[in-house]
Amino acid sequence: MSPWFSAAAVIGQLRAEWTVSEGASAWLTLAVQLGFVAGAVLSAALNLPDRAPPRTLIALGSLVAAAANAALLIAPGALAGTGLRALTGAALALVYPVTLKLMSVHFTRGRGLALGIMVGALTLGGSLPHLVNGLGGADWRSVIAVTSLLAALGGALALTVPPGPRAAPPAAFRPAQAWQSVTRGGVGLATLGYLGHMWELYALWTWFGVYFAGVLSGPGAATQAPLATALVVGVGALGCVLGGVLGDRWGRVRLTVLAMLLSGGAALLLAALSWAGAGPALLLTVSVFWGFWIIADSAQFSTVVSEIADPAYTGTALTAQLALGFTLTALSIALVPVLAGAAGWPAVFAVLAAGPLLGAWAMTRLGRHPDAARIGGGRG
């Protein structure tokens, strides 16, 4: 998955290389998101995760992502670069949700922790570009080359993974299953909870550095803001692991509700503190707490779907859920700078808090649904 974050790590150098504005270069980041959505929608509609061998899809997606990422080295400008970033995201739609499915058929006991570790690794990867920037950056060609090589290696490794002891036989081609799987019964409520979670997640990850640079507003902000962002994002890897442990032992519904109430509460507290003009140390402390809990429940939504969806179309349901979630992130990411300019950062944090509060309500409803009996931890 490393090509997802490769351009973000060197965005300043790419702007200089291709002589583009900050607004135009923002599409290099957003294109991956939108490409992933397009790839996930197509994959779910074709039921690819349930009709083709998972390791083949993961290898194919990884190799295409590696090639598209490496092509940035010869791209003539930002327009071609944006197209390549969209292709990278579309290819990774064959990696992320399919890997979730593949791991779920290898684990019954400890499934929440297994998926939590996987999402925690992705979270840690998301923090690395900010760490690179905070430490002085790296040559963009080296970053692109290394991340492309890592993606290709990951694809090759995927070919060695066995299908798993609980793998279902190839499913029949049913395009309507993609929408039906995430709108009915317990899976529909879990998807609504996931949407509430995603509303705040990528908006925080994308814009926290801008927000905190404004809080610092001193000569050291250019270095300190990226390092603070790396901490706020990276601490979520620990949150994912704890979320997996609690999800397995305490119940996934309880864990997701707790995590969203804590992350939503942290967002509201940050809104109040920002309005009151609190100092950077206190704001960063609350933000780290937010960063820990904002992602702690992420893998558990996928785990719930893997447990209660139609076993023949688990991959389709997981892919469709991710497609909806990442579509929503594009909206919240675009909303943040508009709202910050019109009403300030306190309003941004208050609006972001609405997502997890709605998600907590949906998961509470799921806890009373008959499908809850099949979730790890039962109705808890």
Rank of each mutant, 00 (worst) to 15 (best):
S2L: 14
V10P: 01
V10R: 02
I11W: 05
L30P: 00
Q33E: 13
A38E: 05
G39A: 10
S43F: 06
A44T: 07
P53S: 11
A59K: 10
L60I: 13
A66W: 12
N69D: 12
P76N: 12
A78C: 08
L79E: 13
A80K: 07
A91N: 06
L92N: 07
L100D: 03
K101S: 10
M103H: 00
V105Q: 05
G112Q: 04
L115G: 02
A121P: 01
S127R: 02
P129H: 05
G137Q: 01
A138F: 13
V143Q: 04
T147A: 01
L150N: 04
L153P: 09
L153V: 15
G155M: 12
P163M: 03
A167F: 01
P170C: 00
W179S: 08
V187L: 08
V187R: 08
G188K: 11
H197A: 05
M198S: 09
M198Y: 13
A203C: 03
L204R: 00
P219D: 14
G220Y: 00
G220V: 07
A222Y: 02
Q224W: 12
L231W: 02
L238D: 00
G247I: 03
G251S: 11
G251Q: 06
T256S: 10
T256H: 00
L261F: 08
G265T: 08
A278M: 10
I294T: 13
V304Y: 08
V305P: 09
P311A: 10
G315V: 07
A320R: 06
L324R: 09
V338F: 13
A343W: 15
A350D: 06
G359F: 12
A362N: 12
R368S: 13
I375P: 07
I375W: 04
G377V: 09
R379C: 03
